[in-house]
Design a protein around this nucleic acid. Structure first.
Length: 597
RNA sequence: GGGGCGGUAGCUCAAUUGGUUAGAGUACCGGCUUGUCACGCCGGUGGUUGCGGGUUCGAUUCCCGUCCGCCUCGCCA
């Protein structure tokens, strides 16, 4: 068997005169005549041109070479020489070529259903790419992503190892617990009727590792949540999971800021500096979302107090409304500088229609000119015209877009509208990295349907040290010691200082409606651990897939996962999930209620 | 669970108001071609129009159901 001496993509003019063996896939075949043809050979490093010609090739070699077709796998030995026919500036190896002397066809390929060709790739439907993932991954772009992902995980391990973090694996077959996402479950053969759950995250195990004295923990792990995917979300995804002992919020934030800075330094040569911090309350009020995109300046203002003085039904009705969680209705708005010209009637009508997906009624608008408010809802703004203009610092040519609804709906609608406006008006400068810590999240959210408090982050999150006093007396106002790291408007990490005392943990469980007995049966292991000497601790988890998405610049999570799943949780390459045999089911004491096909 | 878009040759897409033998590019096959490099030129093969029903003289086209893919709301502690 011919053994590789060089990588195709690495060949340069300095190699001229060397004898080399290349191994790879046929990328293209170009015949100039019976006596001269070229093939481009591809390996993980790139392409190299191989020449077959009568001058140097015996007849058998020419015959064999002539049958080469795309995606055949071959080894070729020959001399590297500077090209006699002129260099190809499009190839990194374009100054040289390999003069074939010996050819070994490792494997003829059937006609490829898709070609791993950057000219083609963007046009090929994703369905086909996923089915033939092993061909799609041969594309230089996909190879590059796999490599970048590997670089990131290696840099991550290096950084945290240098800071005393221990890499520890936690189990995949664990226990289903209430709270959180829907579990994937696995039937137990040895315990008929009982089920394991696959982890939504190693949360409790990493906390218990802190109780176990490991001090600092790292794991790059798979997490599984049986919920509907999105463009940036898969049921099966990867986290960089971290936990530290004897720390407060600022310690974790500092460590993780250092990690991100070192990563960006290595990947982009960029100095991030200190990452700014914003409270959750500010994020929601000014940006309408808990992960603000701070790359552009559009801000939301709550003008409810003013709006109450307008004789405008829409405002009045909104202000009189109450959300299921009990918050009063609001009137909020966004000032769009220069929007009077940039936003057409068609666009604003479109926004009105679009916000209905967030259950908002519509988007009233008004223009601001040298003569004051015009068009739209101008006639209703009389009583507050000057005050509103001053509050929003309006200048002629601006446009103001409103949302009048419950706090939740108006906030969401304008938060989304803010992003939509940025995209439509091209307000987001390319190549910008805006990191932001969001802190001071509420501990709880009121679940009107379940008529109970639910943990906003998770029920192991500690209240901020100064908030213990109001934990029971005003749970809705109680702030947690949680923190999210946001990059360009996307949450790339989230964590918290954890509760390390059994009595506090019990109080939080009680608040979310878990009785002591239930807590003991569902989370007894954690409570037991907390009883036996738990250090103060906290941690965070980075969404590895999203991190890679940002680094490689894609908005499709499937691009950064070697073998991703589709929107309905399927793997088109291996055709999973699939039924199992009756015998397998019997062995597991499981019977399906699904109709048999 | 809801909404939207899509499914036609291996791939990417066309096909007028429901009307002749469903076309083009590319890939593939054959021939030509001695410096190409997304090579070029000539010719050819290739179709369960996702699947199942229905309406009709006639369905890629209209209707119903269903499957698959993508986006999205809910959901995702």
């Amino acid at each position: 068997m011919l053994k590789r001496t060089h990588f195709c993509g690495d060949l340069r003019s300095v190699h001229a005169g060397e004898r080399a063996t290349l191994c790879g896939w046929i990328n293209t075949y170009r015949e100039q005549g019976r006596g001269l043809f070229f093939v481009d050979l591809r390996d993980k490093q790139g392409l190299a041109q191989v020449v077959f010609g009568t001058e140097t090739c015996p007849a058998e070699l020419l015959e064999a070479g002539r049958t080469l077709r795309r995606e055949d796998v071959v080894g070729v030995t020959g001399m590297i020489r500077v090209r006699t026919g002129g260099a190809n500036p499009k190839l990194a190896s374009g100054e040289v070529e390999l003069l074939a002397e010996k050819l070994e066809v490792f494997n003829k390929a059937e006609t490829p259903p898709i070609l791993p060709d950057e000219y083609e790739a963007d046009k090929i439907g994703e369905e086909t790419r996923l089915k033939y993932r092993y061909i799609d991954l041969r594309r230089p772009k996909m190879q590059g992503i796999l490599r970048t992902r590997s670089r990131i995980t290696k840099a991550t391990r290096d950084f945290f190892a240098a800071h005393g973090f221990l890499e520890i694996e936690t189990p995949l077959l664990i226990k289903s617990t209430p709270e959180g996402a829907r579990d994937f479950v696995v039937p137990s053969r040895l315990h008929p009727g009982s089920w394991y759950a696959l982890p939504q995250s190693p949360q409790l195990f990493k906390q218990i590792l802190m109780v176990a004295g490991c001090d600092r923990y790292l794991q790059i792990c798979r997490c599984l949540r049986d919920e509907d995917p999105r463009a940036d979300r898969q049921a099966e995804f990867s986290q960089i999971d971290l936990e530290m002992s004897f720390v407060e919020r600022e310690d974790v934030i500092a460590m993780m800021g250092g990690y991100v800075a070192s990563l960006w330094k290595e990947l982009f040569g960029v100095d991030l500096g200190t990452i700014p911090t914003m409270t959750w309350a500010t994020a929601m009020e000014r940006y309408g979302i808990d992960r603000p995109d701070t790359r552009f300046e559009l801000f939301i203002d709550d003008i409810s107090l003013m709006a109450a003085r307008c004789d405008f039904q829409v405002f009045q009705q909104a202000l009189a409304s109450r959300s299921p969680a009990g918050r009063s209705g609001v009137v909020k708005c966004i000032r769009v500088p220069g929007g009077a010209d940039k936003l057409t009637r068609k666009m604003t009508d479109g926004y009105s229609e679009w916000v209905k997906t967030f259950r908002a009624g519509g988007v009233p608008v008004v223009k601001y000119t040298a003569q004051g408010f015009e068009s739209g809802i101008a006639k209703f703004l009389g009583p507050i015209a000057d005050e509103l203009a001053a509050r929003l610092s309006l200048v002629p040519g601006d446009m103001v877009l409103f949302a009048a609804d419950t706090w939740e709906i108006a906030t969401k609608a304008l938060g989304e509208l803010r992003l939509r406006l940025a995209a439509d008006l091209k307000l987001i400068p390319p190549g910008k990295w805006e990191f932001l810590w969001v802190v001071d999240f509420p501990m709880f959210d009121w679940d009107a349907e379940g008529n109970r408090w639910v943990a906003l982050h998770h029920p192991f999150t500690s209240p901020n040290p100064d908030q213990f006093g109001i934990l029971e007396s005003d749970p809705g106002a109680c702030l947690s010691a949680g923190y999210d790291l946001v990059l360009n408007g996307s949450e790339i990490a989230g964590g918290s200082i954890r509760i390390h005392r059994m009595d506090v943990q019990q109080r939080v469980f009680n608040l979310i409606g878990l009785s002591n007995e239930e807590a003991q049966s569902k989370f007894g292991f954690l409570l037991n651990a907390l009883r036996h000497g738990a250090p103060p601790h906290g941690g965070i988890a980075f969404g590895l897939d999203r991190l890679v998405m940002h680094v490689v610049g894609t908005d499709n999570i499937r691009d950064v996962i070697a073998f991703p799943k589709t929107q309905s949780g399927g793997d088109l390459m291996i055709d999973a999930p699939s039924p199992i045999s009756d015998e397998q089911l019997r062995e597991l004491s499981v019977r399906t209620t699904a109709p048999t096909s």
